[in-house]
């Protein structure tokens, strides 16, 4: 227990925490992100209704404006309902869960892939490096959303039709993950090339450790801090990529709507005056992506020794 205490103490006294306290914008973004994550995690407990339960939906409740009783049923919804009478607040909370889940797992996939390839390219050098980095160069010449759509399309073509909806989320994660690995690989490759020339790596080679052991045990811990920054910024990108794909109708299936799916639905009714169906999911997405981005920017600045 005393060890945990001293760790907490060290954290409170650290530059990291000091920087955090001194930046109101960062505190606000952190609180927003934390709140949205908690909403997503405890969606079942917090959301007033279950938007996926078709039985509970009443079509008469469709297009109820926010905070006004419905003309037929007299029910009131905080953020109104969509065309099918789904409570928007609940739909947003559950949509947030899908968006965050897809974003986080896609970033983890991109990170694992990018860090491994970057380590390999930087440590091995030679043709391994050339092949990996040329692949990265080629990939960045395409917009990542295009890559994600391509992967998504191919996967759907390969999957049997009855599995398509079931695996749509998985395919989405893989598509976004594969389209975002390049920044990780590039950064890690650069740092690895610096680290591998250091003498502690020579000392490890001297006792006969294999390349894999040296990469994972010695070099990896020393290249991780920029990875953390990229991961945060990529998270915002991945969330937006997911929303874009879902908006285009190739992402999350209608049975599991993400924020992007909700925005797409809302978009159909914007010009007929039902503004709330679009506005609230879009505002949530904005708050999430913006906060994550601001956190990432702050992290980048605070972990950069040259800006101190």
């Amino acid at each position: 227990m005393s060890k945990g205490n001293s760790l907490m103490n060290r954290f409170y006294k650290s530059d990291f925490f000091y920087d955090f306290r001194k930046s109101p914008v960062t505190i606000v973004s952190f609180v927003v992100v934390l709140a949205l994550i908690l909403l997503a995690v405890f969606a079942d407990l917090i959301a007033p209704t279950d938007p996926f339960d078709a039985k509970s939906l009443n079509l008469f409740n469709g297009f109820t404006p926010p905070m006004e009783p419905n003309a037929f049923t007299g029910e009131t919804f905080t953020l109104g309902t969509d065309d099918q009478g789904r409570d928007l607040l609940s739909a947003i909370i559950f949509g947030l869960r899908v968006s965050l889940f897809v974003g986080l797992t896609a970033v983890i996939l991109a990170m694992v892939l990018g860090v491994s390839l970057g380590l390999l390219a930087g440590y091995r050098g030679g043709w391994v490096d050339s092949v990996i980095m040329r692949a990265a160069d080629i990939q960045v010449t395409f917009p990542s959303i295009l890559i994600a759509m391509l992967i998504f399309g191919i996967a759907r073509g390969l999957l049997p039709p009855d599995l398509r909806d079931e695996l749509a989320i998985t395919v989405l994660i893989i598509a976004i993950g594969l389209s975002e690995w390049v920044p990780f690989a590039r950064t890690v490759r650069g740092t690895t090339m610096v680290e591998k020339e250091k003498e502690y790596v020579k000392a490890a080679r001297l006792i006969g450790l294999s390349g894999r052991q040296i990469m994972l045990r010695h070099i990896l811990p020393n290249v991780l801090s920029p990875v953390l920054v990229i991961a945060t910024i990529t998270l915002a990108l991945a969330i937006i990529a997911e929303a874009t794909l879902s908006f285009l109708g190739v992402g999350a299936p209608p049975t599991e709507p993400s924020l992007g799916t909700l925005i797409r639905i809302g978009q159909d009714f914007l010009f007929s005056g039902e503004w709330w169906i679009l506005l609230f999911p879009a505002a949530t997405l904005l708050a999430l992506a913006l906060s994550v981005n601001l956190l990432g920017d702050w992290l980048r600045d605070t972990l950069n020794p040259r800006l101190k």
Binding site: K198, E199, K202, A203, L206, I207, P221, N222
Partner: peptide, 30 residues
Amino acid sequence: RRTRRRLQMVFQSPYASLNPRWRVGNILSE
């Protein structure tokens, strides 16, 4: 492997020759 155990090296830079993320105990027990 047997020969390698009999050879060791002390490096020039006291800063780059120790992995900054490892505790001294781990560096020595590796």
